[in-house]
Amino acid sequence: MDDQLIIGNKRIFNRLFVGSGKYSSNRLIPHIMQESGSQVITVAVRRVDLESTEENLLNHIPAAAILMPNTSGARNAGEAVRIAKLARAMGCGNWIKIEVIADSRYLLPDNQDTLKATEILVTEGFTVFPYMRPELMTARRMRDAGASAVMPLGAPIGTNQGLKTRELIKIMIDEIDIPVIVDAGIGKPSEAAEAMELGAAAVLVNTAIATAGNPVEMAAAFSLAVKAGRKAYLAGTAPVFHLAQASSPLTGFLDKDNGDL
């Protein structure tokens, strides 16, 4: 059976989601998607210009791609809701990644307002993906509100620091029964693989690809790493021991003399 992620009515076979900001040219986007095989791309509604032909970001996105518009620039729940509705009115579909950020220095999301926006947008019929600080209780509330997945950060946006929030994300993966998609902070393919080995449903990578020396090659590398990590997770990674396993176990004698039992 194919290993697929089903969200809404979409079937996703490639678990690397990509971003569309920070590239030296939007013309790179189709190549990135082709080389990596990525199906899902997030797009900032603030950057979409339907009136421009050449500079319209949407014109560079392959028709088969699944569009995940995001509410970048929203400072509170109300603004996120308005941006989401604009995305729908622009013809960007029903998916929405909620970003509510009221701190321009660290770009950390506001979980409270993100939850508020999630509640509103689910009732408005959106397929909602809240971007959040990894925190189990809020993630549960987002799930209860009807979020289709949760997107905890691995490290602050753009920092390429890797899975700094590893333990918190692991708890979310273990406890939440909707997909956990690690977004932000992943700097290297090995870190994407690490997230997938933990059991993340997918990872979203932008800065690490967009600002790489060769973004197209880097996207392909991320795609391979995501596949490797996913395969390892499904295979069941071998347990880790802190002590070597003695070849003559201390309790070996119990096996030798079991004829009396």
Binding site: N26, V45, R46, G73
Partner: peptide
């Protein structure tokens, strides 16, 4: 470098006061 012509979208009733 990518020339970005549009980096904001006017949303009605903006501003902290009205939010």
């Amino acid at each position: 470098y990518q020339p970005v012509f549009k980096d904001w979208q006017y949303i009605q009733e903006g501003g902290r006061h009205f939010a």
